[in-house]
Design a protein around this nucleic acid. Sequence first.
DNA 1: CGTCTATTTGAATGTACTCAAAAGCGGTGG
DNA 2: CCACCGCTTTTGAGTACATTCAAATAGACG
Lengths: 193, 193
Amino acid sequence: MKDFLKAYLQKKVELTPQQLDHWISLYVPHKVQRNEYLLQEGEVARQLTFVCQGCLRLYSIDGKGKEHIMQFAPEEWWVGDAESFSNNTPSAYFIDAIEESEILQIDQRSHAQLMLEIPPAALFFQNLMQKRQAVTQRRIAHSMSASAEERYLDFIKTYPSFTQRIPQHMIASYLGITPESLSRIRKMVNSKK
Amino acid sequence: MKDFLKAYLQKKVELTPQQLDHWISLYVPHKVQRNEYLLQEGEVARQLTFVCQGCLRLYSIDGKGKEHIMQFAPEEWWVGDAESFSNNTPSAYFIDAIEESEILQIDQRSHAQLMLEIPPAALFFQNLMQKRQAVTQRRIAHSMSASAEERYLDFIKTYPSFTQRIPQHMIASYLGITPESLSRIRKMVNSKK
DNA sequence: CGTCTATTTGAATGTACTCAAAAGCGGTGG
DNA sequence: CCACCGCTTTTGAGTACATTCAAATAGACG
């Protein structure tokens, strides 16, 4: 399971073998069942998670009890509430498993340590955050400018692999529409071609 | 003008006088007129900007020619396209001045230098990015769960000072609604009380 | 004062939503 | 292997919220 992270880091970051081994040594492997929570609203996010196998989701629940999915995290994705994780503040989000998953987790202290000890790691995570911010910002612009249909088509184009494995009502939640609307949109799209 | 940044940094970061002076020394002051661009789509963002006086905005323009404002930046705010700035890639955004403004700018190289030389500065900007990400993410969740009216009320509550000085059609653009809709919403809200 | 832009108002339209019910799918146990 | 259960997806009908297009009014600036 740690080999999976190893291969990933080798691909992504320039590191000496020692750095690589040290980095990896800080993670603890876990198995989680479908629907199992890694984080719930109000808790402090004490772990940052890397997904080796399976799929997680990060979402919030609004005042009316509706879920709003911020991120899906299949293999090779990182998930966590960065704000809560680094400031030790209660999170506004939930994280749970969509599928039975194998994950690696690092706690706040080890992560902070890592940032100091291995500068390329600090750089890597900074870059990761930045990309996430870019994606999130584009998502806002897109949700303001595009129709639900356009947003759906863009989603399946951007994340073709997600479309297969993620339940439709969750994709609807990610897109900010109702499951019924997504169903109708799919019908439309299929009849077009 | 630089005194303004100095006072700001003293408030926000623990620094030795030498660190503070060095940090500040890296910025170049500018005056910009209303409607003047600091960045246009397709350009690389070569500067990171701190606003001393006035107000800027960061926005994109979609395929139909509509503006979508991502951020307003009055006094004490930082603006820039972090992705473009640090990766030297073309930006998808525009930045211009809503009011005649006084700003301080730092270029890519000086900023990178600063990150290495003054660790508290690196920490500060990392934190800034993180907060921005948190705000952006909340904005998505909110735009999915709340009506236009709720979003407007939330906006004037969160940014009361913006409401005075920013033209209404720009607030509409930030909220992701048409100016006409915002006008009607305001009418509604006023008649309620 | 006149011009240009921003805001308001009106009427018609449309996109996505709600509520309700049916159909489909997957897993479990008899 | 089939019957049943729970959950997801689909379909239908009616509705609501925000949009578009058009025109009038108000405000700002030279």
